[in-house]
Design a protein around this nucleic acid. Structure first.
Lengths: 212, 212, 212, 212
DNA sequence: TATGAATGAGGGTTCATTCAT
DNA sequence: GATGAATGAACCCTCATTCAT
């Protein structure tokens, strides 16, 4: 049938990824059919296979690309941040920000892990472990520096990640709060949670009021 | 396929629920086939329909029963607890404890909501909202009492729930920590997170509310 | 419980085997679709799977059953036959007769071996080897007895089998020749082929031309 | 399919025919996909259509070319052979030799006839009939000359062809026997089979056992 | 000539569900 | 209650083929 103008190649692949992201986020990997996906993209189901090798590989690619981005951007966010407190603040800010921007990838990477076949699963879990490790290190450092008071670093790591990740379940762009306000709220919660009673978190300097 | 003598109807139903819980937890609702479930129970697929009306209803029942239990037991846990601090502590302890005991139901109730058809979905979300509301009330009360310092009660509510709920992703019975240790760690994290740095509540200076 | 008409159980399986035999014979295993087969049987494609586990297994079953029958019936045909000449005659008569009666199974077992997956292939080839071995033994015995003059037993074995098997490519029931005439013709050809010039085959006493 | 000198079209076309021959022999026509074929040749599937018009036509070409060669070479082999015995011997020698040399074409021409569409099928069957007719004539002549003793020429024709053709199912170059030994064995089998008891076949003078 | 993307049909197979026995 | 056979829809995926580039 008549196709839209323009080079189809890269465009089609991008459309598949985008639509796939949305459909998996909305219905789940198992519940998304390639017929749906193809219809969304505007091609026949079989034509998908000019761009992907398998439904499974599409999922794996989406997740792996996300995790790689996550790790790479975390490095950038933490670069030249000194001290556990500042690094934790940077971690929270980055994590929340990333999760608001790419909440679909994040959600999928968390909820569809079980749909990955073993080989892909191993790879992704390893990368995710590396990410968690970054937070665990910050907490450990902070305890050593005496600025954090954490009973169990592992529990705290998981808890903080869960707390931060949870927001992609409820965050909707254009909601009541600004992005900055949400970041500030989480910074405060997390830092308060891990800092000893005697210390107090330094103000972040943001006011969270949307100004545009 | 061992059958006990007597009326084994209730037994079969219980086996179905149990196996269904496990299979949905493990593979997801969409990925669990009734053939699998029947095989697990030791009957033929068609025989399931002597006990359930629909795959969808099985899911709805499992989730609804869980949420009802959750609410009922929360009432019990909070009964005769006075003061926001003590009530929050009780909430955390109850929530963590319940999630460790019934992590499969909890996980399913969180991850398979999207598989519920609209009518069931509404009902469950309403009940879940009631549960979250209990926590929000505690936080609001605490702020009014001056014992909590929370910028945005809603964000804090979601965050705390996410934090607590996250543990059913990693908790394994028989792990490194005792149940009590995990409860204690979470109590500390949460209470630290919401209590003011000093004895006197510090004005936050940011309200994060959109002003447009 | 008596099976009434319309109660399909064993009947359906038998219909599947029969139709499968015909369709594979006619179009080849690869070219036969399960949709065709189901239509022939009068059920929906998916319903086939109440009776077979796989298209591949259907083929393997058809072939294996045939080969088992072939071996078993050969034993019967050779029982109490004495002497290489008489045994060879019995072999030829049995083989030709069986191939005319069940030419579809025979054809499939020869032509669709390559469609068997490795495990099934091994099993069938082994059984076929056992069958060929029976003929090879007869030839070897005959040479030892001095009644056969064969340069290479293996070549002769393959050749005789091929000669006899070839007839299921052209034999049509109701053709010009009677079954007995065809058997007689092949007995003569084979025995002449392997007996030394000096000996002479016993007259079969049948002329084989249909007289009606 | 015009071939121009200088271009490498012929090369590609030859590669397609060669790979097609091998793949059809190995997997069967239905089971061979043009994607496989293209991969084997080292081009994209769509590019095949610069050389062939259709999968079906590729098969028909391969078979027809083979049959034409077969007939033409048979004429050469029989030229200036006199007498039914010598002509039969020549037929057998030629047939066996050709089948060993080009066993893939032969096998395909026998086993994939059913995959030809009606028009191609008719043409090929007619040519094959002509080939069989040559053998039938030799047998008929021999009976008239009194050197053959055959009850039914048609049965004998089919049987001999089957016997000879069967060897491309088991012959492997480099096996136990030399080409000449195999030819000699078949000459003996066939001639013995059709000659009357009183006559004796002339020795072929070859022993055929590999000595190196 | 070769390519890559598209088509439309169809492949084997699984599914939730029904129902006579 | 349990069963086995049936349904009809849908699944992921492969196919031969076309055609603009």
């Amino acid at each position: 049938m008549a196709r839209t103008i323009g080079s189809h190649g890269p465009t089609t692949m991008e459309a598949i990824r985008k639509a796939g992201l949305r459909l998996i986020f909305q219905h789940g990997y198992e519940a998304m059919s390639l017929r749906q996906l193809a219809a969304e993209v505007g091609i026949q189901p079989g034509s998908l296979y000019n761009h992907i090798s398998t439904k499974q590989e599409l999922l794996a690619d989406l997740i792996q690309d996300h995790i790689n981005d996550l790790l790479r951007e975390l490095e950038t966010a933490l670069r030249d941040k000194e001290g556990a407190v500042e690094r934790l603040r940077a971690f929270v800010a980055f994590h929340v920000s990333y999760h608001m921007t790419r909440k679909r990838e994040v959600f999928i990477a968390n909820s569809e892990l079980r749909s990955l076949d073993p080989r892909n699963y191993e790879a992704v879990v390893a990368l995710r472990g590396a990410y968690e490790q970054r937070l665990a290190e910050i907490l450990t450092d902070g305890v050593a520096e005496g600025v954090f008071d954490v009973d169990d670093v592992q529990v705290a790591t998981f808890a903080i990640i869960a707390l931060l990740t949870g927001l992609c379940s409820w965050y909707r762009p254009g909601g009541r709060l600004t992005k900055d306000a949400i970041i500030a709220a989480h910074e405060k919660l997390v830092l308060s949670g891990v800092m000893p009673r005697s210390a107090k978190p330094s103000p972040s300097g943001r006011d969270g009021i949307k100004t545009e």
